[in-house]
Write a protein that binds this DNA or RNA. Structure first.
Length: 441
RNA sequence: GGCCCCAUCGUCUAGUGGUCUAGGACAUUAGGUUUUCAGCCUAAGUACCUGGGUUCGAAUCCCAGUGGGGUCACCA
């Protein structure tokens, strides 16, 4: 039985990389008809952020990454499961008590001469640290990287397993819990690679069966370096707010570090699960590319039906009546890439635009007078009539087609970027249109 | 700095010794769609990090260098 888990700590917003880890873990489980576990790793109460756990659950639900089992690590502490494991290690000589904090980092790097001074003191209280042996080889086969990775334990520092407050550190909790929850495949970020030898040793000393372990690539910022909150809005929530659709975002994230053999790019979560194959995992770090995300989001918007599109627009379109929205939606559905662009394209429908004269062309006066005259005589205000009458004006006056319509567009909307102008005028109505034209001429 | 990982167009990638004068997508550029922008259609340019091996033959295997990333807490 394939069982995977997503194990975030509730210390802030879910990151694009976190979403991807969850997605891959989910797909790995579900592709194999297995189970997906959500485990909240909240053993550091100092760093916990209020409401973060709820946010995580909300987002996973939104993306359709539904978990089969749910655990909160801190609630498991009182069962004594971690403490017992740590004490067992002490008793068997694989760990020791320690009463000071300290780092092992040195300019020259870690070496076994830097071993913790507590390790031979035989203390009986305090935190518990792993006693890493000297000059042994530890290794495992990474199922993402696809090869054996190994360390000499002389390069590995003693890590704290149980804190003096009785809470386990990640290194202990992850091993105990993965074993207890029968996790078959551990999928995590590449940043965990350096602490894997610790986990390998703890697994061995505790007599646990080692799960399959795989380390996902880090997602890189276009500027270089690991993607982080500091460098732009890469929290999932932030991206959603910017107007990316969950389906598009998830689809894009699939492709950051994984690809199918046939290079298919557009697919749903269900399709992804069906075709998922660990062989498609990438080994080198991908760069988070907004341009491609934008394109993909546009694809999903264009693919949506009109009703669905209108529903998506709900939060962007306050001030627009349902009726007006229904008329505008078809005009912008094919040209919008992010929902947040809605306002830029359509504000002029509900507000009088301020027209900057410098945007207008040199012949704008003639253009607009002619347009006004032509539109004024229309009886039946529909697209067909407007098209006909305006084209006539263009021909009769020998205007350049593009210049004429650009001036008309700017006079009526205040901007160069709008839905098709004649369609917009239909919606705007005769009175409003003429009024705006008069104001400019 | 020590340890670990990685290396195909600007970006995401296909490619697992010959079919590669290296394929697709995004982005870019040009043209078309007798009205902008977008969309759609067409076309173009752009890549196997470097140096050594192995082999009849290497983007594909090995080694070194270089470059990029990660990590070195009683945080996860």
């Amino acid at each position: 039985m394939v069982r995977t888990r997503f194990a975030p700590s509730p210390t802030g917003n879910i990151h694009i990389g976190g979403l991807r880890t969850a997605l891959y873990a989910y797909a790995l489980a579900k592709h194999n008809k297995g189970e997906f576990i959500l485990r909240i790793e909240d053993t550091d109460k100092k760093r916990e952020v209020e409401g973060a756990t709820e946010k995580i659950k909300e987002l996973l639900n939104l993306f359709g990454l539904i978990w089969d089992e749910y655990f909160i690590q801190s609630e498991r502490v009182k069962s004594g499961i971690y403490k017992k494991a740590a004490e067992k290690l002490v008793k068997e000589g694989h760990a020791y008590y320690c009463q000071h904090e300290g780092r092992n980092a040195k300019k020259e790097g870690f070496s076994k001469e830097l071993r913790d001074s507590c390790r031979d003191k035989n203390l009986t209280s305090g935190a518990i640290k792993l006693r890493v042996p000297d000059n042994e080889k530890v290794s495992f086969k990474d199922f993402v990287v696809g090869k054996e990775i190994s360390w000499n334990t002389s390069d590995v520092a003693d890590a704290t397993l149980l804190k003096s407050d009785g809470f386990p550190t990640y290194h202990l909790a992850v091993v105990v819990d993965d074993n207890d929850m029968k996790v078959s495949h551990v999928l995590r970020g590449h940043d965990w690679m350096p602490s894997t030898p610790i986990h390998l040793l703890v697994h061995k000393y505790l007599g646990f069966k080692l799960p399959e372990i795989g380390h996902l690539t880090d997602i890189l910022d276009p500027e270089g370096g690991k993607l982080s909150k500091r460098k732009g809005s890469t929290s999932v929530e932030g991206l959603l707010k910017e107007g990316y659709l969950p389906s598009a975002l998830l689809n894009y994230v699939c492709l950051l570090g994984w690809a199918p053999k046939n290079n298919q790019e557009i697919f749903s979560l269900e399709e992804f699960v069906a075709m998922f194959d660990p062989k498609g995992f990438q080994k080198s770090n991908p760069v988070f590319d907004r341009a491609k995300l934008d394109w993909m989001n546009g694809e999903y918007i264009r693919k949506a039906d009109l009703e669905g599109f209108i529903r998506m627009l709900k939060s962007e379109s306050s001030g627009f009546s349902e009726e007006l929205l229904k008329k505008i939606a078809p005009l912008i559905k094919d040209r919008i890439k992010k929902l947040s662009e809605f306002g830029n394209y359509t504000r002029f429908f509900i507000e009088e635009p301020t027209v900057e004269k410098k945007l207008l062309g040199p012949n704008s006066k003639k253009h607009l007078e002619a347009a006004k005259k032509a539109l004024d005589k229309i009886k039946k205000w529909d697209l067909e009539e407007i098209n006909e009458v305006l084209m006539e004006a263009v021909k009769d006056n020998g205007f350049k087609i593009g210049d004429f319509f650009m001036d008309l567009r700017i006079a009526v909307t205040g901007t160069r970027f709008t839905p098709p102008i004649n369609d917009s005028i239909v919606i705007l109505g005769k009175d409003t249109t003429l009024k705006r034209l008069s104001k400019v001429t």
